[in-house]
Design a protein around this nucleic acid. Structure first.
Lengths: 245, 245
DNA sequence: AACGCTATGTTCGTCAGCGCACAGTGAGTG
DNA sequence: CACTCACTGTGCGCTGACGAACATAGCGTT
């Protein structure tokens, strides 16, 4: 309760012009996101969109037999709950807190009202959605074509980018759930990284020792996604009447 | 040139209120989409959005080494080029005509202008985008968890849904490219379906003989995606000021 | 200090899909 | 009408991931 994070630690909120932000700020409700908490269940109507400030949320696609796969990860660069402003209200996927932390939330009706003002927030939300689409597409290819070793590196780097520290709390079991693979497979791949001196693993705590080393092992997917986020979230939209860009 | 398809064969255009459609109709430019033609290349700015009337377009994610994977397929139910109204202008994926046919296109500036009217078209485009996201997410899980046999069934059904006939022109080589697998693998899986009497394969022509048979073999992914399209594209948006839905 | 639970490490047989090489076979072309 | 090329079918050995079973080890609890 005591210390609340600054909403503008979230990149979306930070990117708003000051007047827009000031109008929005009183509507933002701080929430603590606990590890493993569910922000969205398949098919259930979402009540809020969440702007993480330092939490990380995984979007998972869960199947009938319980197998799941992470299709995207959201941190302080984005927002959870795009189906609210996209018009569908629900999605067939789950949103689970992968790393505990803080967020600010905005109720569905409010975010829709803001979205329909067609101002900077709409623009940001749509661009972010496109970046998310890229992440999902790249995840699909990566699942198909790359080794578990590479995918683990990708996953570690994606998480690392969204964390203030170089330590993440996450068991191999959970990582396996995210990646949609066996726990033993993660043990093996993580073992390789550990023996190579890139990470130190200890009972649910992973410390990244050599980030460049991870970047050297990761597949292209990581860079593609990251580059697309940078492009989409820093580019300033030209005025709407400017014609062909 | 002679016979042009009715633009309203495209579900998006058909779903527009008549007055909206009539305003839009003169702006729509008929185009023939030839097999293998590219509507979008990775990183290149798109000039048009395309509303297929009877063509099918594959969205592919291509990697450095040339390997590719289809991340979604678009037919008369949708539109190609969402990055134009989402704000990114480009995507890191390719759009390739998978089945020749007709489409209507709308230039980037025009579609943006229409989108920003915040009318029924915007609503449709956003809902469609969400459905597309679902398709991509489900493709990612399917790539991870399901056998090639099942994925081939899914692919055939997705194509079939977007075709007026029960015959599709597509070599096993091309299907393999779409699914991101080996050609031999497709030969083997298609052989099983053929021996089971579900399809007849003959030099680039696939005839579906037993659709229910395919549906019995396909994984859940097909139904999930289809259901979500139905839900999103038939649901009518409540008025914007109605509060919590 | 003993216990129990959770997390990690290891092994082994199995199998789907890969990469490669090559054999048929139809369809269109000169 | 023969040729060629594209498409399909098949047979290897190989490998990465799977599933199951089990061993070890840290950490908190009592």
């Amino acid at each position: 309760m005591a210390q609340q994070s600054d909403p503008r630690q979230n990149s979306m909120l930070a990117a708003l012009p000051l007047d827009e932000y000031q109008r929005l700020a009183p509507l933002l409700e701080p929430v603590e996101l606990k590890l493993g908490a569910s922000l969205a269940e398949s098919g259930e109507t979402m009540r809020y969109v969440y702007f993480p400030t330092d939490a990380i949320v995984s979007l998972l696609c869960v199947m009938e037999d319980g197998d799941s796969t992470e299709i995207a990860v959201v941190g302080a660069e984005g927002v959870v709950g795009i189906s609210l402003f996209m018009g569908g209200e629900t999605t067939p996927s789950r949103a689970i807190v992968q790393s505990a932390g803080s967020a600010y939330r905005l109720s569905g009706p409010l975010v829709k009202a803001e979205f329909y003002r067609a101002g900077p927030l709409q623009d940001l939300l749509l661009r972010y959605t496109q970046a998310l689409i890229t992440q999902m597409a790249q995840t699909a290819v990566c699942n198909r074509h790359h080794s578990l070793d590479q995918q683990l590196c990708r996953w570690l780097l994606l998480s690392l980018d969204r964390l203030p520290t170089n330590e993440l709390r996450m068991t191999q079991e959970l990582i396996a759930n995210m990646l949609g693979v066996r726990r033993e497979g993660v043990t093996e791949s993580a073992g390789k990284l550990q023996r190579a001196g890139l990470i130190a693993y200890h009972r649910g705590r992973i410390t990244i020792l050599d980030r460049p080393g991870l970047e050297a092992r990761v597949c292209e997917c990581y860079a593609i996604v990251k580059k697309e986020y940078d492009r989409l979230m820093t580019y300033r939209r030209p005025p709407r009447d400017r014609g062909i860009g």
